[in-house]
Design a protein around this nucleic acid. Structure first.
Length: 464
RNA sequence: GGUGCCGUUGCCAAGUGGUAAGGCCCGGGUCUGCAAAACCCGUAUUCGGCAGUUCAAAUCUGCCCGGCACCUCCA
């Protein structure tokens, strides 16, 4: 499989450290509010990566954290007159509701920053011991960015350019830092803020160090893939690299993957622009699955423009997949042992092309096109195929959809006896060409939430 | 100022040297009692513009136009 590595800015052949085992870390949300639709992109994209790699026979260790202590949480808790802990717990729950709704598999491990204080402190201790960290007079601990000669290797930013970019230097942290490029790994406690004891006094960790520590704890000092949104490249991931590599003396993540941004009306989504949507809001209107489909409809590194209209289109596309599956199930019910077997070859071809596309830096848009080509083949060939071929096709179709995490809202319930009876009565009415009666029954079925379609093989009942 | 990204049919979106995938929408047809679903046909001589390289360019080079993002805690 080829993966575009942000570090090299090239597609590289992906080779895990250990054959058959893939270790991935994806930066999770800060749980201070409902997640927004932009947050859903890395969730869906990297979940799909995980599903694909697992399907291809890898044992995937997938770690995605929850940031449950940070400035925004503290601010939100103060505003709402609650505690950081209570707020974080509440929104972690909401986050999981959304992530489940998007059919995102739960991570192998979902570490919380507040539960890793000892790991964080140990890492900072190493940083300080190796001379990369220093304690400011107020108890903050800073990282000496300039001392790490490779600083900027991920973002390809040059420190001196950064310095010139804004008047950041002394303005930040009131001259506590030795250098404008330095960043906090530990922040001394301020009144009313949650704090943990440390060798440098009471305080809390900086944002970047949390991920460094949690990744190390659960994946080791070096692991395969680190992923997140493009905006995290700098400073978050750059700083993670600096901290981790200086403390551990070895490569941090071997491949870096970053998803493109989600825009609204071609503008970055932001509260101030008034184009801010939470996943929950959109899901209530359009359903979660349309959001997931939308995220996979374009390549993960390109910018994606969001609108309700586009989501409607996604729903229509999904409907084609669902209908195809219904047709396939129906054909299977009616199938005989004898018949055509050509479909089997088409399925095999689709599977191969699907893998080819996914192997090419997770080209989900092309993978979907392959799936739709298969849909056409199924719709054309299903009626005459053998029972065995149809059973195999259904299994394979479900697998491919599941690799993308789609078609998870299948209706598997039995059709109620009442409906079956009505369908039979309607068949009788049609026999005697009593069209009025037939239409009446169809309306009745409609009211019960079922659609009946007359096919060459008999009536097909579908729950709406 | 520095670093990147993007501009393909009405809409979404692949394709990155070999003559424009796929989905949605739309029009016509087949099937159907009607419908639905499905299938078939039709929908970009053209890929922001202009030059250039090449037998061949949406794909490479240059310039220009338009849009977006990052540059210390936003996925």
């Amino acid at each position: 499989m080829k993966i575009f590595n942000t570090m090299s800015r090239e597609k590289e052949e992906f080779l895990p450290m250990k054959e058959g085992e893939v270790r991935i870390y994806v930066c999770g949300p800060t749980v201070y509010n409902f997640i927004h639709v932009g947050n859903a992109r890395p969730l869906c994209v990297f979940d799909t990566l995980r599903r694909y790699m697992t399907w291809r026979g890898n044992d995937v260790m997938y770690v995605s954290n929850v940031t449950d202590i940070d400035d925004r949480l503290i601010a939100a808790a103060n505003e709402q007159g609650t505690t950081v802990k209570a707020l974080a717990q509440q929104y972690e729950k909401e986050y999981l509701t959304d992530s489940d709704g998007l059919n995102v598999l739960r991570p192998s491990v979902m570490p919380r920053a507040t539960e890793h204080m000892q790991d964080i402190i140990a890492l900072i201790r190493d940083i300080v011991a190796r001379g990369y960290g220093y304690v400011a007079e107020n108890g903050d601990v800073y990282f000496r960015a300039r001392k790490f000669s490779e600083y900027g290797k991920l973002s390809h930013l040059v420190l001196d350019d950064l310095e010139n970019s804004r008047e950041l230097s002394a303005s930040l942290d009131g001259g506590l830092k030795e250098d404008g490029a330095d960043f906090a790994v530990w922040k001394a406690a301020k009144p009313g803020e949650p704090a943990w004891e440390s060798p440098w006094g009471a305080g809390r960790p900086g944002w970047h160090i949390e991920c460094s520590a949690m990744a190390k704890k659960h994946l080791g000092a070096t692991f395969d893939i680190h992923a997140g949104g493009q905006d995290l490249i700098f400073p978050h991931h750059e700083n993670e690299i600096a901290q981790s590599e200086c403390a551990n003396g070895q490569t941090f993540a071997r491949y870096w993957m970053h998803n493109g941004f989600l825009n609204i009306d071609d503008k970055k989504m932001s509260k101030s622009l008034g184009n801010f949507f939470t996943v929950r809001q959109v899901a209530e209107k359009m359903g979660y699955e349309a959001i997931r489909y939308f995220m996979l409809s374009a390549h993960y590194r390109t910018p994606l423009n969001f609108s309700m209209d586009i989501l409607e289109q996604c729903k229509a596309s999904l409907a084609r997949l669902y209908t195809c599956r219904e047709n396939l199930v129906f054909a299977l019910e009616k199938a005989k042992d004898a018949g055509e077997t050509m479909l089997a070859a088409r399925v095999q071809e689709a599977r191969d092309r699907f893998c080819e596309k996914m192997d090419d830096d997770l080209n989900t848009a092309d993978a979907l096109a392959v799936l739709f080509d298969l849909v056409r083949e199924i719709n054309t060939l299903a009626a005459g195929s053998t029972k065995q071929v149809l059973a195999d096709t259904l299994e394979e179709f479900d697998i491919l959809c599941d690799v993308l995490g789609l078609l998870y809202e299948k209706q598997e319930e039995e059709v109620p006896a009442e409906v079956t009876q009505l369908v039979a009565q309607r068949a009788e009415a049609r026999q005697t060409k009593n069209w009025a009666r037939a239409d009446e029954i169809r309306d009745a079925l409609d009211a019960l939430g079922y659609t009946v379609e007359d096919t060459a093989a008999g009536p097909k009942v579908v729950k709406k």
